[in-house]
């Protein structure tokens, strides 16, 4: 009995999620104690709604990092496809529902993702270089060819979708209210689908396999090129969806204000225990890490930290978080290499 408990504990302690969950809880409790506002219903709803866009981006970034790649192009990709979609719908004076916007954006996202996938999957170029290049290309197409400007009016369907809410949380103390956006459903659906795919399909396990060893994956019979290509197409679609959600929720299409998000998103994914070298990590951890970043960005103000300090905290969080896990890895290796011969001594 005791051994099974210690075994479970040891297994848990080897995983990253419990630690990140602990840190997250500590932070939440700290904010709660200092402000008494953190666990209020409206704040929780605010955080949930702030998680939608980064959460979607993080899911895409997670898949790419698991496969052993890295993607810095998703903000540019999302900006381009959502800007093109919005502009197109405005130009044709579209009055229908949001579904068409989502469909067009998904299609565009798939095409742009295929662009990444072509060079990374089929030409086997390094993902960092390709996505750096493609992010530049996407930006160029958006700002040059489409001559993008801030669109303060968005199609009515998108507007309605952005303002509609599942429910409204009201804080009995402060009287502040927060809307739970319908967009969260899109996030949850994608989260569930990707979770299912990564865990219960051969395609998803193939992504893990490629991240572990591309040669082994190839020899085992995974179509490495196709898997990568399709994955980047999916990531493009998820990023585009995030773009649509963002435009709907903000009620305007700003071509450049998503650019630069890539660093914090990747940081969140890695904080959640996803190995930057690929192959290891869970979607749960990835979401916890992203949530941590979102809370630091949104809730520090509750304990009187001025917003101008939030980058300092994000930076420290990244350094300490990755530092601890890097230390763990090197420590584990040392322990392991010291232990192996010792076992023989006993035997």
């Amino acid at each position: 009995m005791k051994t099974t408990i210690t075994n479970t504990l040891r297994k848990l302690s080897r995983r990253n999620e419990p630690y990140i969950f602990l840190v997250l809880m500590l932070l939440c409790v700290l904010i709660e104690i200092r402000s008494g506002q953190f666990f209020s219903s409206n704040n929780l709803v605010d955080i949930a709604s702030a998680l939608v866009v980064p959460g979607l981006f993080a899911i895409g970034a997670f898949m790419v990092i698991i496969s052993g790649g890295i993607d810095v192009s998703f903000p540019a990709l999302a900006s381009l496809s959502v800007y093109a979609t919005t502009k197109f719908l405005l130009d044709m004076n579209y009055q229908g529902g949001v579904w068409l916007a989502i469909l067009i954006a998904l299609a565009l996202g798939a095409i742009l993702g295929a662009f990444n996938g072509l060079f990374i999957g089929y030409f086997r170029l390094p993902a960092l270089i390709v996505t750096l290049g493609s992010s530049s290309v996407f930006k160029g197409v958006m700002q040059g060819a489409l001559n993008s400007k801030q669109l303060t009016i968005i199609p009515i369907g998108m507007k309605d979708f952005g303002t509609s809410s599942l429910f409204i949380a009201r804080n009995p103390v402060s009287g502040l209210t927060s809307r739970m956006p319908v967009a969260i459903i899109a996030f949850l659906v994608v989260l569930f689908l990707v979770y299912f795919m990564m865990r219960y399909t051969m395609f998803g396990r193939g992504i893990y396999g490629i991240g572990g060893s591309e040669t082994s994956a190839h020899r085992a019979g995974f179509g490495v090129r196709n898997t990568k290509f399709i994955m980047y197409v999916m990531v493009g679609m998820i990023a585009s969806l995030a773009g649509v959600m963002r435009v709907c929720m903000m009620q305007q299409a700003h071509p450049t204000n998503m650019l630069g998000m890539e660093m914090n998103i990747i940081a969140g994914v890695v904080l959640g225990g996803t190995a930057i070298t690929g192959g290891r990590g869970t979607l749960l951890g990835c979401m916890l890490g992203t949530l941590l970043i979102v809370i630091v960005e949104n809730s520090l103000i509750l304990i009187g930290v001025p917003t101008s300090w939030k980058s300092v905290f994000t930076g420290l969080l990244i350094i300490i978080g990755t530092g601890v896990s890097a230390y763990q890895v090197s420590h584990m290796n040392r322990v392991r290499s010291a232990k192996t011969p010792a076992k023989e001594v006993v035997a």
Binding site: R205, G211, G212, S213, T215, S216, R219, G279, R280
Partner: peptide, 11 residues
Amino acid sequence: IYQDFSIFPNL
């Protein structure tokens, strides 16, 4: 069976 055993160390 290749020298590197064609395994996935992360799985």
